[in-house]
């Protein structure tokens, strides 16, 4: 692997099977993917097609059955602080206040308290959590908890941000703000982002490139470039009135709707992986 490659994340011949009591379950089809540094990639696809599986493999929590993942020229063998993750399920610590959850990554990195507090204050304001800094997660609403999770990942300032439907539980108004902030923040800091969502609008709004997955076992069936974001990121007003953007949304929507929903995996109906790969 060439370390000077412009690709921040490379997924090579990836395929994953889960071992279950009833035998292996194929979670994803064959996936090859390259994400250049500073690109914002969003991923849409039917439920159960393997989106989370792919994200967790990039994060280092799943060892691929086949193929490999390369980040920054190094094969991924486990999680690391270069890859921040906002999980699909809620993953903030119930025994830490909002403040201490958001500052957790900085605390681990040994950032002095004063500086930590500054970063936390900035993110608290950004995610609309002002006044709740000293509350425990069980005292917050579901959407607020999810915002804490997002803020915690942003505060740790990783190079790569992996987000699994981070705004699903956030109210519509806050979601718009968070999306705009995410777009401009990641653009100005040149973050590489891999973002899973079920919302086509969100996928197109945020992305440099939208990936559409087929139903389980999912492959990447389409990759749609979205014209470069302008320096200040995007805002929803201009997005909804831009015919070019709306055309892309329609295109993605059509691709997604072609994929019939096919809930959970059924063991025992695993296709021959060799045939699948050819």
């Amino acid at each position: 692997m060439d370390a000077t490659s412009p690709d921040k994340i490379i997924v090579e011949g990836f395929q994953h099977f889960f071992e279950t009591a009833d035998g292996p379950v194929q979670a994803t089809g064959l996936i090859d993917l390259k994400i250049p540094a500073a690109e914002f990639v969003t991923l849409v696809g039917p439920s159960g097609c393997g989106k989370t599986t792919l994200l967790k493999a990039i994060a280092g929590f799943i060892t691929p059955t086949r193929g490999r993942i390369v980040c920054d020229g190094k094969t991924v063998t486990g999680p690391g602080r270069d890859r921040g993750v906002v999980f699909q399920e809620l993953a903030i610590l119930p025994w830490r206040t909002v403040r201490r959850n958001i500052g957790h990554g900085l605390e681990i990195a040994g950032v002095p308290k004063a500086e930590r507090e500054r970063t936390v204050a900035r993110l608290v304001a950004l995610t609309g959590l002002k006044g709740f800094e000293d509350r425990y997660p069980h005292e917050l609403s579901g959407g607020m908890r999810q915002r804490v999770a997002v803020a915690r990942t942003w505060a740790a300032d990783p190079d790569i941000i992996l987000m699994d439907e981070p705004f699903a539980a956030v109210d519509a108004m806050t979601r718009l703000t968070l999306q705009e902030e995410l777009a401009s923040l990641t653009f100005s800091t040149r973050k590489t982002v891999f973002f899973i969502t079920h919302s086509v609008d969100e996928a197109v709004f945020l992305a440099d490139r939208v990936l559409v997955m087929s139903k389980r076992p999912g492959r990447i069936k389409a990759s749609i470039e979205v014209p470069r974001r302008k320096a200040g990121g995007r805002d929803w007003e201009s997005f909804t009135t831009d015919p070019e953007m709306q055309a892309i949304c329609e295109q993605v929507l059509r691709l997604v709707r072609d994929e019939r929903m096919d809930g959970a995996a059924r063991p025992g109906e695993t296709p021959d992986p060799l045939k699948e790969a050819s």
Partner: peptide, 18 residues
Amino acid sequence: VPPVLEQSVETLGGSRLH
């Protein structure tokens, strides 16, 4: 203890002991 809690702190750079 939900594994995702431990995983989330791993991605923040937390050591095993931490």
